[in-house]
Design a binder for these strands. Structure first.
Length: 460
RNA sequence: GGCGCCAUCGUCUAACGGUUAGGACAGCGGCUUUUCAAGCCGUCAAUCGGAGUUCGAUUCUCCGUGGCGCUGCCA
């Protein structure tokens, strides 16, 4: 196969937001297409008119764009290709390869229960395939499989050789009517019509594959190559679902960077040469056959770490755009160096508005409020003497102050530093954990520092 | 119940049939230090079980066991 004939797709149904697993599936399809110089398409599987909505579809498109996974050409909608399915369905029907089944759902349910009780494979082998076509009263359309002895096999590009016995499938359903196709049928028609070369999807579709191969064969269509991706698991190893918290890609938008999500998702099912890498680097290294066979647990800790790495790389303007925060450029690195999730940036509000704190917090270890007042008063003088606050100038002055203060203490010089630096930190940040007070002072500027120090002294 | 997929530290994983079974995240300890973060150093921790093949199995085969998926007139 010529590389330029490589065509892949993802085919989400707009019955919910883009699931994190579908996001990963999209990523691998995209990586494969890019690596091979092929094309990546997006098809919306909206045959279930009851549950599909335009809102979900828009959200899915938005999530894909957010992740930076661009697709080729127009978005394809199954709802607009009913004629395609009808033609194929009528062909199968007229050739006797498909038929109308008139069993009621109650009968089917009873049959299934009986089979389970008798330890038989669950399947429906219809016994009235000769009823007149399209008989009034409807009836579902099934593929005529019967008790075929055929063994259906395929070489999965990730899992290797897989085979099923066709006879165990029964006469499975393919459409509610000629104008109302079901998944296993519509997907085949579309993949064939779109000339999809590799069907890369979640492994929950493995058991659909033999059914689809039978449809390809019944229609005389070329069967594509299949590659089944392992599922992303919840911490308890079950399928990731609502009760495990966020499972939609959009849920991550407020806290995570798309680059981080893509990097994390990529690394969940594939071993790249390093932990952190760009989409371009991933494309370079990607090989479909090297995708892992077993499912991986969604590890938020690892995701957070990756996210923190990307947050640090943000430029001040990128950071401000993302968070909508109006902080000085100088302050940005102070925040990003300590952030795992974007929304946590709110905790650094003292960088753009005066902090509120209890004056008891001003005390360093066993020092008294008088010590604090004394220290802050001296600090105020130091600051006022400076033309402008720079890291070097203020730090030098405060160091001198520390040595001076330390002399009064029998202990080491860190006591002196503590008495000088600690109160200043609290004055500037209102917190016991914060960036270095000198850095804060530089970012805040002389006027603001003087204002906050004076206010503190006044409170004591 | 039937069919299928999978199986190395807590997690993600590496290891032409020969390694002290390696790395990363998390955890823990330390250094640095005015607090946090970062950084650096160190540390804990794994081949599901049983046969077989082999001089030698994490690796190959088989059987168990376990987990997961599918078993829809959803996709």
């Amino acid at each position: 196969m010529d590389n330029k004939d490589i065509r892949v797709r993802i085919a989400p149904s707009p019955t919910g937001f883009l699931h994190i697993g579908t996001g990963q599936s999209a990523l691998y399809n995209w990586l494969f297409a890019k690596k091979m110089g092929g094309k990546f398409y997006l098809r919306i599987e909206d045959t279930d008119r009851e549950r599909s909505t335009k809102e979900y579809e828009e959200s899915i498109l938005g999530a894909l764009c957010w992740l930076g996974l661009d697709w080729c050409g127009e978005v394809i909608h199954q709802s607009e290709r009913i004629q395609l399915y009808r033609t194929a369905l009528e062909k199968l029907l007229s050739e006797g390869k498909a038929f109308y089944c008139h069993h009621s759902q109650e009968e089917l349910e009873a049959e299934r229960q009986r089979q389970e009780f008798e330890k038989q494979p669950p399947r429906h082998e219809c016994n009235h395939k000769d009823l007149p076509l399209g008989k009034e009263g409807g009836g579902i359309i099934r593929l005529n499989v019967g008790d075929s002895t055929q063994v259906i096999s395929f070489e999965d590009q990730i899992k290797g050789h897989i085979e099923f016995k066709a006879g165990l499938l029964g006469d499975f359903s393919i459409a509610r009517s000629v104008s109302d196709p079901l998944y296993n049928f519509a997907a085949v028609i579309d993949d064939a019509e779109m000339e999809i070369s590799h069907v890369i999807r979640g492994e929950d579709h493995i058991s659909n594959t033999p059914k689809q191969i039978l449809v390809y064969e019944a229609l005389g269509l070329p069967v594509p190559l299949f590659a089944h991706l392992p599922l992303i698991l919840a911490p308890d190893k079950s399928k990731l679902s609502k009760r495990h918290g966020a499972m939609a890609v959009v849920d991550y938008k407020k806290d995570y960077l798309p680059d981080a999500i893509v990097n994390f998702l990529g690394g969940l099912g594939y071993t790249f040469s390093k932990d952190l890498l760009s989409r371009e680097e991933m494309i370079q290294e990607f090989e479909l056959s090297k995708v892992h066979k077993s499912g991986a647990i969604f590890d938020t800790k690892k995701l957070n770490w990756i996210n923190s790495q990307y947050i640090r790389r943000l430029t001040p303007s990128e950071f401000k755009n993302l968070t909508g925060l109006n902080v000085s450029d100088l302050a940005v690195p102070l925040i990003t160096e300590r952030l795992e999730k974007l929304s946590d940036a709110q905790e650094f509000s003292y960088l753009w508005e005066a902090p509120v704190y209890e004056k008891e917090l001003l005390k360093w270890k066993d020092s008294s409020l008088e010590d604090v007042k004394d220290s802050l008063t001296k600090t105020l003088v130091v600051v006022e003497e400076l033309e402008t606050i720079t890291d070097e100038s203020l730090r030098n002055k405060l160091e001198l102050l520390s040595v001076d203060t330390g002399k009064a203490s029998p202990n080491n010089r860190s006591v002196g530093r503590g008495v000088v630096f600690w109160p200043l930190r609290v004055v500037l940040s209102g917190r016991e954990k914060s960036p270095d007070p000198v850095q804060l002072a530089v970012v805040l500027g002389k006027d603001e520092v003087i204002k906050r120090v004076k206010e503190a002294i006044g409170k004591i």
